[in-house]
Design a protein around this nucleic acid. Structure first.
Lengths: 235, 235
DNA sequence: CCTAGTATGCTTGTATTCAAGTGGCAAATG
DNA sequence: CATTTGCCACTTGAATACAAGCATACTAGG
């Protein structure tokens, strides 16, 4: 939860468990805050400020920021400061290309080895997502959404590919959460169902189309993006 | 160049420029040494040992190791040590899948906008690679090889995709350099030429096949891998 | 001889201190 | 009044010091 405080800027409140790696916890908190746009692009990430908030030294904070900078979520300017990176539209476009290419390739392999057990498991996830919407738990919805797409990699017996997809999806998620409309979440349910339906029918081409349609839905956000947020984007 | 020394293990000799970021230089040296298999899988990466060799403190060394661990090149075990990661065959397989899926997708886009200028530039790179072989400069060959494949992303106007491909290619390169045979390098030349030839003819399908053949050549290494190196691999 | 316990040296994780560069602001100078 | 100069607060980078856990070797006791 983002809230302004005496630090003068946006802070992230969190109590961490000192028995577990500190840098890991700081990293996770910051990463989630950035993806959920609680820390909007351009927000200064002062190491000292974070040290005071988390009650830890700079070392683990620096480690966390270093990881975030490699992930492209934070820009570090020596002797000037670190800031939540702007959302580069070209990055969003390229990340979408990566994700779509990989998921379609996975889907082609999954279609050839589709089983009723897979169908059940996927429909289970979809049902959970529907419940997430009813409960209004957006974070849980996105977590289960990742689970759905991850299953594609698992079923294709290429679980390692998911890491690459997730990295791309992370960059996309920030854009979607920023521009997205909660009313659109139910559409995801029907699109997921369309994919599983096609797979159940053994129609690989239809599944291909359904997944493409599902993933390309992000493009409508390119149009709807409000002008007032221009400052948060580049390119 | 890897060489044993008083540290008791394998060391990396290098003189670094203190006017530039130290951690960056340490990272680059270590990364190259690991990819070129000068530091084989399982090699202990002692922070203190590296500090003595580079004549720097632990802080930048730790930063470098942290980056390498995220790249999957180093495994860090708290209170035990850090080691060059084993080459996981499932990782190689998945990385190959990522690379092939993305490069083929890029090629499909490039084929539709192919120009004589692109053809010239690519043939230029190929010529340079042939020269690298004549000079016996394997490192330069691989550097130019990356350039060739990077051009696909550039021509498709999705330069950002290259970063993802490169990450996958890095994992593959370590495997190839370990198992590879220098005699096979000239084959790369003819395969690259076949791709450009097909593009020049405007035959997208042939280009597709040529690139697939080129990338799938790595699978012959799966068979030829000598038994004595088993210890360096897992899965 | 074998086993249990302990001591020691190694490792990484965290904290703290020092160093160097940047940008803004205010005062001095033309 | 405009410009420059020096100071100061702030940033990250690097160096050093401290803490805590693990593995090995050694020792004492059976």
């Amino acid at each position: 939860m983002a809230l302004t405080d005496g630090e003068g800027l946006v802070s992230v409140a969190f109590a961490l468990d000192r028995r577990q790696p500190v840098s890991e916890q700081v990293y996770e908190v910051l990463r989630q805050a950035i993806i959920r746009v609680q820390l909007p692009p351009g927000t200064p990430i002062s190491e000292n400020s974070l040290c005071r908030q988390f009650k830890v030294s700079r070392t683990p904070v620096r480690a966390a920021i270093l990881r975030l900078s490699e992930e492209g979520l934070v820009d570090v300017y020596p002797q000037q400061g670190s800031f939540v990176s702007a959302i580069k539209l070209s990055d969003v476009r390229d990340s979408h290309f990566v994700r779509r290419s990989l998921e379609l390739a996975l889907l082609r392999e999954v279609a050839g080895r589709w089983t009723p057990a897979m169908s059940r498991e996927m429909r289970d996830v979809i049902a959970t997502q529907a419940d997430d919407i009813r409960r209004g738990d957006v974070d849980a919805f996105h977590r289960d959404d990742e689970r759905f797409h991850q299953l594609l990699a698992v079923y294709a017996e290429r679980a390692g590919v998911w890491g690459t997809i997730l990295a791309a999806k992370t960059r996309l998620t920030r854009f979607i959460r920023f521009s997205g409309n909660a009313k659109r979440l139910p559409v995801v349910i029907t699109e997921h169902e369309a994919i599983v339906d096609a797979l159940d029918r053994g129609d690989a081409d239809a599944a291909d189309d359904a997944l493409t349609l599902h993933l390309d839905r992000i493009f409508v956000l390119f149009e709807q993006r409000p002008e007032r947020d221009r400052a948060y984007f580049t390119n």
